[in-house]
Amino acid sequence: MQPLRRRLISSSRLYHSYDHPAPPAATFNQVETAILDASLPHIPTYGFTQTTLLRGARDAGYLDASTNIFPRGPFTLIHYHLVIQRLSLAKQSHILQRSNSNEQPLSIASKVKALTWARLMGNKDIVHRWQEALALMAQPTNVTTSVVELSSLADEIWFLSGDTSVDSSWYTKRASLSTIYASTEVFMTTDKSHGFEETRNFMDRRFSDAQNLGVALGSLNQWVGFTAHAGLNILRSKGIRL
């Protein structure tokens, strides 16, 4: 229980300082990063396999045996890919800030959409191998890391988009974005259309579904609140001390 709890906490949202540099990421050390970095170009050919790690280790100038530093084998490669792609979202400056002033800055919702699409396009080159990855990610030993990584992605997208809601919607927003992203990602693995047009349409439909649901829930909430207030005020007007 303790290691799992520790792992969940260390990767969950902790105080993000602007004055102090972020602590060095404990996930991958220097050697691991070197090997994994060198492995990335081999993924389209060899997939998320031990072979890719081996090629990466050779390219980085390490012995074949050095792949033993990855006890989880190919899953580490998947994890590395997820982390790298998530962190690269912060560099999507064309979405996050419009440089020329004649273009209107995007709304939060359209930033979320654009960033989600940008993240999906990060899988573009390896999408024919992504089903293997999804299978590995769903294995019981890996599923915690995968889910944590998915929620970190949703958190990153909402944060980068400039969303500042800190009530219950913090949770619902992240949950719905995670659902949308995960389902679209699965859809993308079978998409053969030009430029992933079908995936784009699929994602747009998911976003509008979520929006409709949000509007419906919001209206219901408003109606309940209004009725309760009105009822209370009627009772008060009748002279009942409430």
Partner: peptide, 21 residues
Amino acid sequence: LKKSLTQAQRDFLTSALRVNQ
């Protein structure tokens, strides 16, 4: 020096801000 905050410090700040809110 600009050192990063320790894990304990970040844990404290996280729960402090959350509980204050």
